[in-house]
Nucleic acid binder design. Structure first.
Lengths: 346, 346
DNA sequence: CTGAAAGCGCTAACAT
DNA sequence: ATGTTAGCGCTTTCAG
C-alpha cells in the first residue's frame, strides 16, 4: 500500500486540497473545526508530507550565507576553500550559497556583517546563516536579531554559548583535550617527567577548552606527569620554534608534548634541532602537510583532526532541515574528533 | 537565472519532451543525429536533471533487503536494531526495507537466503541487497547470480573480495589493524613481552584484514613485541573467556592484547579473573555497552569503532545511486575508523 | 472561509 | 522515429 497523499487527506476530511494545504502549512483562513477535521484525517491515515514534492512545487531554493574570518591561518583558508567547493555541488540540492569574510577577532565587524544580511533586499535575505563566531556581546545580539527575523543561525568550529544560535557544528574541544591526555599519558607510561603544552593564545576559546580537558585527565589519571604552564606560540611557526627550543634545552625531562594550536612546523623544527633523547612523545592538532610529514617521520605520534568538509556538509544538512522545520536530532552537528597515527593516515 | 529544464532542452534541440527524455534515459528509438542534437543542447545549456522531480514522476520505490547474521554478539544485534530504525525513516525517501537473518559463519545458509531473494515473486524481488558476507565460495556464487539478475549487492562491514558485489561499505580493516598496532605498540613502549590477538574466525574477511594490518605494523615498528598466533573465540563471550584465561595463565608475559572480533564481555571477565600484573594494555573493536564499561573501568585502553548508523545510511545512499545508475564516487562507502579512549566516550 | 485549476521538472502511456 | 498528453504530490494563484 502506498503512502497517503494530500488527496487522501482531503477526501477523508471532506475538504479541498487547498484547505489541507493551509492546515499543513499552518496558514490561517481555516475554521478551527475544519482544521481539526483535517488534522484528524492526517493522523488517521498516518499522513507524512513528501518534502521533495513540496520543494519541487514551491520551487524552493535554500539561500544560505557563510560569514568567515579573513584568511588569517591555513585552517581558515582551507575552510573557505571547502565552502566554495561545496557551493558548486549544493546547487544540485536547490541550495544557493553566498560567502563574505570579516576581519578575525573583531566582534563589531562580524556583528555588522550579520546585520547587513538581515537588512538586505527581501529576495537577498538568506534563509540561514553559518558563522565562525567571535565570542562577543555584539555578536550575540546580532545573532539574536537574525533569529528574530526568522533566519536560522549555525555557529561553525567555534561556538557562541548562551546565544540564540540554532545549532553548533564542530568538535567538542574539551573532549579533544581529554583525548590528547589519554593518548599522551599512555604513550608515556612508566616514564617520569614533565609534559609541555604548546598553545596559540589563551585568548582563543577552543584553545582554552582543549587545555581544560587535557589537564582534567592528566590530573586524574596521570598525576605523575606534571603538565607545565602553556608555552604560547601565537600559532606562529617561528615563535613556536624559538620558545619550544628554549623549553627543551631548559628542561631535559620533557617526556611529552601536547600542541593544541597552530605553528606545528616550528614545533617540528625545534624537535629536530634539539633532538632530546629519548625523544618526547608528541600529540598535535589538525592534519596538514606539516603534521602529516611529522607523523610519517616519527616526530609526531598522533594528530587530532576535525574534518572540515564533513563540518560544512553537516552545517548545510542541518540548516535545510531547520528551514523545513523538519526535526533535527539533538546530537547532530557534533563532529567526531579524528585521531591519526602514522599508520592510519588517509 | 534558473536551472534549465527538459523544456528548454527540447526547445533548443527542436524536439519534443519525449525525445529529450529518451536521450536522457538512454532509451532507444532516437536517430543518432537527433540524439546528438539533444546532447548538444544539453551541453550548451548546462542541463542537469532534477533527480527529485524524476523520482516523483516515476513513483519510484527502492526495494532494499538486508541479510544479517543472527544476533550472536551485541555488535550484530546493534546493527540489526539500526537497520530496523532506519527502515522507518527510509520510508520517507521512497525506500522499502526488508530484513532476514541467517546463522553466523554459515556460508551455505547465507547463500540459500540470497537465492531465495532472487527467486521471489517478481514484485518482491529487491532492487538491491545489503549483506554482511561470510567469505565462502557459495556466497560468491550467489552474489554473482543476484548481480546477473540485475540486483545490486553491497557487502557491509565484512567484504567479499574477488566477487561480483557492487560495492563494499565499511571501514578499511587493514588500516584499523595498523592503527591498533600503532596504539598498542606505543602503549607498551619500553616493555618486553608478547602481544595476544583475539579473533572471531579467520573465515571472516574483516578479521583477516585487521590481523594483517596489525602484524604489518607490529613487525615494522615494534619488533620487540612478538604477536602470538590468534586465539579464535568465535565472537562468543564464553569461548573467548575460556581461551583467553588459559592463555593468560600459560603466558604471564603477555603485555598487550588486541581483540579484533566480538565477545569482548568474555575478554573482560578473563582479565578480571586472572588479573595479571602489570595489567596488559588492551585495544578492542566496537563500542558496545560491554566495551564502554571496560574502558570506563580501565580494563580496556582503546576501542576502535565503526559507526553503524553511518554505515547503514551510506549503504542505502550508495544503493539508491547504483539503482538509478547515477555515478558513485569510488571512495564512497569507506567509513572512518573512530578511536575511543575512556576520555572521549560519546 | 473554501475550492478549482494550473503548474513545478520529469516520466510514461498512447498516439502519429 | 517522434510527439501529445496526462499525471507524480504538493503549492499557489484566483475565484467563489
Amino acid at each position: 500500500m502506498l503512502r497517503p497523499t494530500v488527496h487522501d487527506v482531503a477526501r477523508v476530511a471532506n475538504v479541498s486540497l487547498s484547505t489541507v494545504d493551509r492546515v499543513l502549512n499552518g496558514r490561517d483562513g481555516v475554521r478551527a473545526a475544519t482544521r481539526e477535521r483535517v488534522r484528524a484525517a492526517m493522523r488517521e491515515l498516518g499522513y507524512e508530507r513528501d518534502i521533495m514534492a513540496a520543494n519541487l512545487s514551491r520551487k524552493r531554493v535554500y539561500k544560505v550565507h557563510f560569514t568567515l574570518p579573513e584568511g588569517s591561518n591555513s585552517f581558515m583558508r582551507n575552510l573557505a576553500e571547502e565552502v566554495r567547493a561545496q557551493a558548486r555541488e549544493a546547487a544540485r540540492d536547490r541550495t544557493r550559497i553566498s560567502i563574505s569574510t570579516v576581519p578575525p577577532f573583531d566582534g563589531r565587524a562580524l556583528a555588522a556583517d550579520l546585520r547587513r544580511l538581515r537588512d538586505a533586499a527581501p529576495e537577498a535575505v538568506p534563509d540561514g546563516v553559518v558563522v565562525v563566531a567571535t565570542d562577543a556581546a555584539e555578536v550575540r545580539q546580532a545573532v539574536s536579531e537574525l533569529r528574530g527575523a526568522g533566519i536560522e543561525v549555525i555557529t561553525l568550529v567555534s561556538d557562541l554559548p548562551a546565544s540564540a544560535r540554532s545549532r553548533f557544528v564542530g568538535i567538542d574541544n574539551v573532549s579533544a583535550g581529554r583525548t590528547a591526555a589519554g593518548l599522551l599519558g599512555r604513550f608515556c607510561r612508566g616514564q617520569k617527567g614533565r609534559i609541555a603544552i604548546v598553545a596559540g593564545s589563551m585568548l582563543l576559546r577552543d584553545h582554552v577548552e582543549r587545555r581544560l580537558g587535557f589537564e582534567q585527565v592528566m590530573h586524574a589519571e596521570f598525576a605523575h606527569l606534571a603538565p607545565m604552564p602553556p608555552i604560547e606560540g601565537r600559532d606562529a611557526a617561528d615563535e613556536v620554534e624559538r620558545r619550544v627550543s628554549e623549553a627543551l634545552e631548559a628542561r631535559p625531562d620533557i617526556t611529552g608534548i601536547y600542541s593544541l594550536g597552530g605553528g606545528n612546523g616550528g614545533l617540528q623544527r625545534a624537535l629536530l634541532r634539539v633532538s632530546p633523547t629519548p625523544r618526547p612523545m608528541v600529540v598535535a592538532h589538525e592534519l596538514t602537510e606539516q603534521s602529516r610529514h611529522a607523523l610519517q617521520d616519527g616526530v609526531f605520534d598522533a594528530v587530532l583532526h576535525q574534518d572540515i568538509g564533513h563540518e560544512v556538509r553537516s552545517a548545510l544538512d542541518i540548516l535545510r532541515a531547520l528551514i523545513d522545520a523538519t526535526p533535527v536530532e539533538a546530537g547532530r552537528g557534533l563532529i567526531r574528533t579524528e585521531i591519526f597515527l602514522r599508520d592510519n593516515l588517509p
